[in-house]
């Protein structure tokens, strides 16, 4: 099968990748774009470790064929914050010591970031519903909910200032 050019936007930059038609967006991001933040847990859309934003919405990138992202905008965990300027969610996750093994965290953060864009001050119920598609096999959900609640407050305070 000939490779095809995938032109799309990744974390704000226009990117052209040469990909075969039978690879997923997750594989293209990891293997061709070198963005290894999104992880493959189950490969069937159940675990959420591969969550990225596609045109601003959280999706399971293991279920998207790479060429389906043509012309669209993708944001990965690498585009959420930087090492020197963490996103408030990342900052709260660090301070709360949320990551245990860490494998699910990029996906959880992307799901949480999408949630906070929709609900600036989510209830615990909304937070749990928003990250219901993310499995943490270390079972560290309690700290996630606390950190997301706190981050929402920080973002709101920042916006008020």
């Amino acid at each position: 099968m000939p490779k095809q050019i995938l032109s799309f936007t990744v974390n704000g930059d226009k990117v052209d990748l040469l990909v075969p038609p039978y690879v997923t967006l997750l594989d293209a991001l990891r293997d061709e774009a070198g963005l290894t933040g999104p992880k493959e847990g189950c490969g069937t859309g159940d675990c959420g470790a591969c969550t990225v934003h596609l045109d601003g919405k959280p999706v399971a990138s293991c279920l998207v064929l790479a060429l389906q992202a043509r012309g669209r905008s993708v944001r990965t965990i690498e585009g959420l914050g930087t090492a020197t300027a963490l996103h408030p969610l990342q900052d709260a996750f660090v301070r709360h010591g949320v990551p245990q093994c860490g494998f699910c965290i990029p996906g959880v953060l992307m799901a949480a970031a999408a949630l906070l864009e929709e609900h600036a001050a989510p209830t615990e119920e909304q937070i749990r519903y928003g990250i219901a598609g993310n499995l943490c096999r270390c079972t560290g959900y309690t700290k996630m909910v606390a950190a997301i609640t706190e981050a929402a407050g920080m973002i709101k305070k920042g916006a008020a200032r």
């Binding site: 859309g45 959420g48 969550t51 596609l54 919405k57 959280p58 999706v59 399971a60 279920l63 998207v64 799901a111 999408a114 519903y129 928003g130 219901a132 598609g133 993310n134």
Partner: peptide, 9 residues
């Protein structure tokens, strides 16, 4: 249907 990551697709 599924999770939010699935419902967006």
């Amino acid at each position: 249907v599924g999770s939010v990551q699935v419902r967006n697709l």
